[in-house]
Design a protein around this nucleic acid. Structure first.
Lengths: 184, 184
DNA sequence: CATGTTATCGAACACCATGTTCGATATTTT
DNA sequence: AAAATATCGAACATGGTGTTCGATAACATG
């Protein structure tokens, strides 16, 4: 890949990251990004068809290169009788999110959140395929899956909304408690 | 209120309902609505500042006049040892949603979904205030609340996404099972 | 019914972001 | 050194938005 292309791409990503500290994604114009990245207008459009595609690619990058590094279940410490180390794995996910809270927070809460959430769900479905495949005696598999993932996504959104006050460990602990009927 | 205003408003609402059968909300232009409603351009803008405000008002109307009619807990049949008739009340909500599936389905799944979901959450928080206020011994109140509502909203979104295949009763039953740890 | 009020109409307009085009220039690859 | 390719940026076409305003029609009130 041409060095010029790499530089441009990075400039755009950096510009976006920078701008997301000040504005929500949907309030940004392509011109904003172009100015911040200090590139030509047509250059931007030779890399991305549209602003939304940029977001798409950025999310893809994030999940492919950041989260999916540790898709496999942890082989180590299975504390608290945790089935297949779910708690540890979920905690891991939350740590990654906290690392990227700058970007993610700005994406969430607006219209652009759906794109992120789409990737997030897909990631979770793959990453926790083993757990989700488990068939309950009472609740249909699809429903169970929907419920577990949906409630986790919502929990994460809520967590970010609070400004990440709780620790990842606390969030996961409460989440698993609720999932096991601990809300009674 | 002037009859003309009423007619215009209804024409706009009807037009929107009609158009939502064919297109997603965010793909509609103001002109589409104007044409379908058969009104003048400036007339639309004398009623609504923007397309989004129209959606806002429509959602408000829906929740104020349709859902909130039966906010109070059902005094009757408390079958299956159901605490305060939650199952019955949730089922009621789903029936309302099914009534308005035409509108709701078109709003959900797009960027406009957030507006609807915002109203939905607010409604649920009020409608089930009594249940949600219950303090768990282990999980913090706010977390519990977030979890219960979030997972229900997600369940409803999922349900609509499947084309309302399950009956409201089935959905509620499975939801409550999951909430009580029935997913194990 | 008469009169003042208010809503509607719709064409015209200014505005702004989008996405494209193209020839000149700069950088990289081979 | 030559060929290939990326960038630049001004200019442009497009399309939806929201506003303006004078003319017309519908309404409320006494």
């Amino acid at each position: 890949m041409d060095r010029r292309q790499q530089k441009t791409r990075i400039a755009i990503y950096d510009a976006l990251t920078e701008l997301l500290k000040k504005k929500k994604f949907e309030d940004l114009t392509v011109q904003d990004i172009i100015d911040e990245a200090n590139i030509g207008r047509s250059t931007f459009y030779s890399h991305f068809e549209t602003k939304d595609q940029l977001l798409e690619e950025m999310c893809r990058e994030m999940f492919e290169h950041v989260f999916s590094r540790d898709l496999a279940p942890e082989s180590g410490h299975d504390f608290s009788g945790d089935h297949k180390g779910i708690a540890a794995r979920l905690t891991h996910v939350l740590y990654h999110i906290r690392e990227h809270k700058e970007n993610i927070s700005a994406i969430l809460g607006g219209e652009s959140e759906q794109t992120f959430v789409r990737f997030f769900r897909e990631y979770l479905e793959n990453a926790f395929d083993d757990v989700l495949g488990y068939v309950s005696s009472k609740v249909p598999k699809e429903f169970r899956k929907q419920f577990i993932i949906g409630s986790f996504v919502e929990t994460v959104k809520w967590w970010i909304g609070t400004g990440l006050k709780l620790t990842p460990e606390q969030v996961v602990a409460d989440y698993l408690l609720m999932l096991n009927g601990g809300g009674k």
